[in-house]
Design a protein around this nucleic acid. Structure first.
Length: 304
DNA sequence: CGCTTTTGACCCGCGC
DNA sequence: GCGCGGGTCAAAAGCG
């Protein structure tokens, strides 16, 4: 996700509302204007900090990808015959957000190249399915113990299982909108962060999304890069962003999703994040209250 | 009453 | 071949 290349000006235009309030004959040196200048400077400073954080994130991401690629090469050298994935490979898969299908990119698996017609039907189906796997992270309330993820599709739960590597149960869903839709979904809480739901989608919907409702509404919402601590450790959060357009979920594979960033969605998330942080900042609310009360006081003076 | 969810049983692939 | 673990099935329970 090259945010640096498509970076938007995230500075909040705090001057809009104040300018609208300004009266023509108001002197430019009033306390309100001083406050405005101060807030504008603070706004600019915050924007610079945000840009810096983004650059640091990209640098860290590149370092991580280098490390992952090195591990990938070593892993393949050391255990070429291992069928089950090693923990290191699991980590790499987690980071890439896809299954081993990524390593067979192009649709031709190693086994098919060594065995021209050695693939049975089931194996072919597995190959197809593996190419349609994506992983999505949802931020939820810790108290919310349900494994329901609102992504715009209708799902029928057909199983639940407690797995070895995670004390939280894993729920299995099938797409309930179309009877012949092959898409399956697994939902499990993250081991690291119990407030994070990890949804793994397999397959591709063969029908349009049943509802156009905003998938981020309700009890669960998509983790944004800036808000979720776990996302900072997981560069595959690119897939997370992409879930704002769930009809694309089935076709996303790891790194290829990086170029499919939903920019309006990111902007909206950033705006929400900034608005939230500002409203929670006591300094900001105090300054805002002072500015408003000062404005009212001046209006009262003029009316007298 | 019909649909959805729950949950124990079963199946299957993999490692030893 | 056996045991383990993940995935799926299907009957029972829950719910509107």
């Amino acid at each position: 996700m090259e945010y640096s290349s498509s970076w938007v000006n995230t500075s909040l235009d705090l001057t809009i509302g104040v300018n609208r309030m300004r009266v023509e004959d108001e002197p430019a040196t009033c306390p309100l204007m001083e406050e405005l200048n101060r807030v504008s400077a603070e706004n600019k400073k915050l924007a610079e900090m945000l840009t810096l954080m983004c650059e640091n994130y990209n640098a860290l991401k590149n370092q991580l990808m280098d490390y992952v690629n090195k591990n990938n090469a070593v892993d393949r050298e050391l255990s070429p015959s291992k069928k089950r994935k090693s923990p290191a490979r699991d980590l790499i898969d987690d980071i890439n957000g896809v299954t081993s299908a990524v390593y067979n990119a192009g649709g031709v698996s190693d086994s098919s190249s060594t065995e021209p017609d050695g693939l049975c039907k089931k194996q072919r189906e597995e190959t197809v399915i593996k190419e349609k796997v994506s992983r999505v992270y949802y931020k939820t309330e810790v108290s919310d113990r349900s494994l329901v993820v609102k992504d715009g599709y209708q799902w029928r739960k057909y199983g639940q299982k407690v797995t070895r590597d995670n004390p939280s149960p894993r729920a299995y869903f099938k797409c309930a909108f179309a009877p012949n839709c092959p898409v399956k979904k697994k939902v499990q809480r993250s081991v690291d962060d119990q407030s994070v739901l990890v949804a793994t989608y397999e397959g591709e919907h063969n029908h349009p999304m049943p509802s156009q409702m905003e998938p981020n509404t309700g009890s669960s919402r998509c983790m944004s890069i800036s808000s979720a601590p776990a996302a900072a450790n997981r560069p595959e959060s690119a897939v997370t962003i992409d879930q704002t357009e769930p009809e694309k979920l089935g076709g996303n594979n790891g790194m290829t999703t990086n170029s499919r960033i939903d920019l309006p969605g990111i902007r909206k998330l950033l705006v929400e994040q900034m608005a939230s942080s500002l409203t929670k900042d006591p300094n900001f609310t105090t300054a805002l209250a002072a500015a408003v009360s000062g404005r009212l006081y001046q209006q009262n003076l003029r009316e007298k």
